[in-house]
Design a protein around this nucleic acid. Structure first.
Length: 639
DNA sequence: GTAGGGTTAG
């Protein structure tokens, strides 16, 4: 754990060393059984007990020696206890063990883990060059990486090679985790080549480390190449690849890999299952989700909080809010993520008021919100039309929690104001942002311009957004549609030309509905479904109902909504199929029914569907799943 | 001396 450190703290550490040197006397008796016990505790990760044992050793009059310190120091390091570490440093000096290479290394590592990197460097520099072994370099390199001083880590690595100290696999393991952003990819790749060219054994841990590096640096393909080339794969290998796909939104690949993992005989652990569940949530693949839950019930990690959170998210996003809530309620210890998951769950089901209540309840419980839960609640407010409530929450961030909103929060607020038709305010907010607006911020404004048919402002937003995200096809389509609706054919042509010049092609948008284990898939204007006649009749009826709903005043909406649900009185399968025809467009949940310009929040539909059919459905935009490109739906086995 | 984890909008 990183801890903030003040100069005062650092001075205090040095003073403490000094005091101890003067007052503490250590006898010279050594007892090897203490060392054996200490080593065992450190090995098992029982660091608190380790330090306790060390103190008992001192009290009993026995003295630590060069074999004691590495384990005791490791415990202080693991628990990030700088004062206990400094105390140990005193004892090291008292017993004259400081020149022992493994004690020295352990001291360096301890200071690094306690975020006292300057102390670590001082020790390193004070040691004669000839005594510095690979292990010392490794400890400091990984310390720099751990403390986010990647540049220093690289410099030390270069220095190490210059002076001819041999590099080993652990050096690579200390250095590579510093590559965390796409800019670091080149360096990471060169270390990979170096590792191979040096004939260093590319053992499992080094390969896993490199694999994670490729994922973090944004190259999932290179990660997969390495994965495919690995002669041996461990649990961590599978997990690194699964999590890599999951974090990049490649949900179908996650499920494919998970099945491959299970059939290869590797038993998934909570880390793997969390990745799988999050992908099920993204795909609406409730069947796989259920299988995973059964596996969890049979396993020994039944009470794992990470898994419970992932299950809440999965059920909520797959349409089963009741089950999500049940899991949430049953959790003895809910953390911030549990709350975030259930709040977002109510949000996607259109139950904004409940989500807000939960958020407020969470605050009362004494849980300090983070950036993610604010993103969640702000988006809930914007979808539920709770504009002022959302603005209150936004101002709460700085006022109550001293949090600086990031671009992701600004994009939510722009969306919030935009959906409420307060476009000028949204624009002013962007202009006054203390952080640089990203594509999402301008994209939110562009989306709002679509709803309110503001071509002029849309042009401004579009101009900015394509500078920031030139490859995001969604924004081009959005702008093109805005022009179409306004009857500006020249504008449409201009956007299409830019798209052609930039070689951007939009896959046909499609939606799917899962009903009784069967998936019904539709592309825009699709008439191939056997029940298409009934479906369109159903749509006509929906159209009228939705029109009424949109025409009603805001405070009437909830009531009208209930009427709409009870007024349906139709067979749920037909309804589901009707919903399949709703093309959710591009990256927005504003839907257009047939060619009518009725813009409705998709979440409202999810709410309707979940009420009518007892939470068995998922209605989702399926554009990003290439399995669906050919218009068939049976090709994907996960639904 | 050392590799893997959940939540978020457009």
């Amino acid at each position: 754990m990183n801890r903030p450190l003040t100069t005062l703290h650092r001075t205090y550490t040095y003073t403490l060393i000094h005091l101890h040197l003067q007052t503490h006397t250590i006898t010279t008796t050594t007892n090897t059984s203490w060392n054996t016990q200490l080593k065992e505790l450190a090995k098992q990760g029982l660091y608190q007990q380790g330090l306790h044992l060390y103190r008992r050793m001192l009290r009993s009059g026995d003295s630590p020696n060069a074999f004691t310190f590495p384990f005791a120091l490791k415990s202080s390091a693991a628990l990030s206890l700088p004062l206990s570490g400094a105390q140990l440093h005193c004892h090291v000096l008292k017993t004259g063990c400081e020149s022992e290479p493994f004690v020295q290394t352990a001291l360096i590592s301890m200071y690094c883990k306690c975020c006292l990197i300057d102390n670590a460097r001082k020790l390193f520099d004070e040691s004669p060059q000839s005594r510095l072994l690979t292990v010392c370099y490794n400890a400091l390199i990984s310390g720099y990486t751990f403390n986010s001083h990647f540049f220093n880590a690289i410099m030390l690595f270069c220095h190490m090679r210059e002076v001819g100290v041999s590099v080993n696999a652990v050096t690579v393991l200390g250095l590579i985790p510093g590559c965390t952003i796409p800019m670091h990819l080149g360096f990471g790749m060169s270390v990979h080549c170096f590792t191979v060219s040096c004939g260093l054994d590319l053992d499992l841990s080094v390969a896993n480390c490199l694999l994670t590096m490729y994922v973090r640096c944004g190259s999932i393909e290179l990660a997969r190449n390495l994965f495919d080339d690995m002669p041996e794969r461990g649990l961590i290998t599978w997990n690194a690849m699964i999590s890599g796909y999951a974090q990049n939104g490649l949900a179908t690949q996650v499920l494919d890999l998970y099945h491959e993992m299970v059939s290869s005989g590797t038993s998934p652990d909570p880390v793997s299952l969390v990745g799988v569940l999050s992908s099920c949530a993204n795909l609406g693949a409730q069947r796989v989700g259920l299988e995973v839950e059964r596996r969890i019930e049979r396993s020994k990690f039944e009470f794992n909080t990470f898994l419970k959170n992932a299950l809440i998210n999965m059920y909520a996003r797959c349409g089963n809010l009741v089950r999500a809530r049940a899991i949430f309620d049953e959790m003895p210890e809910k953390n911030l993520v549990s709350w975030t998951a259930i709040i977002g769950g109510y949000g996607v089901h259109g139950q904004g008021e409940t989500a807000v209540q939960l958020f407020e309840e969470m605050i009362k419980t004494g849980i300090r919100p983070d950036g993610a839960v604010f993103v969640s609640i702000l988006s809930v407010c914007s979808h539920a039309g709770l504009t002022d409530k959302g603005l209150d929450f936004f101002s709460l961030m700085d006022r109550n929690y001293g949090m600086r909103p990031g671009p992701e929060h600004y994009s939510c607020v722009v969306d919030l104001l935009g959906r409420a038709g307060r476009l000028a305010e949204a624009q002013r907010l962007i202009e006054s942002m203390p952080v640089e607006p990203d594509g999402a911020v301008w994209g939110a404004l562009l989306g709002a311009c679509k709803i309110y048919r503001n071509v002029k402002l849309a042009e401004l937003a579009f101009d900015r957004v394509i500078k920031l995200e030139p490859k995001n096809i969604g924004y081009y389509v959005l702008m093109s549609n805005i022009y179409t609706e306004a009857g500006i054919s020249q504008g449409v042509l201009r956007v299409r030309t830019i798209m052609r010049e930039r070689k951007l092609k939009k896959d046909p948008g499609c939606s799917y509905v899962e009903y009784k284990g069967k998936t019904h898939l539709f592309v825009a204007g699709d008439r191939r479904h056997p029940q298409i006649g009934e479906t369109y009749r159903m749509l006509d009826r929906l159209e009228v109902l939705v029109k009424e709903l949109c025409g009603s005043k805001k405070h009437d909406q909830e009531r009208r909504n209930e009427e709409l649900i009870s007024g349906m009185g139709v067979h749920s399968e037909k309804l589901a199929i009707a919903f399949g025809l709703l093309n959710t467009g591009v990256g927005t949940d504003i839907v257009v029914i047939k060619n009518l310009r009725i813009c409705v929040d998709c979440h409202l539909f999810i709410k309707l569907v979940s009420k009518v059919v007892d939470r068995q459905f998922v209605v989702r935009d399926a554009t990003r799943f290439h399995h669906f490109k050919d218009g068939t739906c049976s090709c994907n086995e996960y639904w």
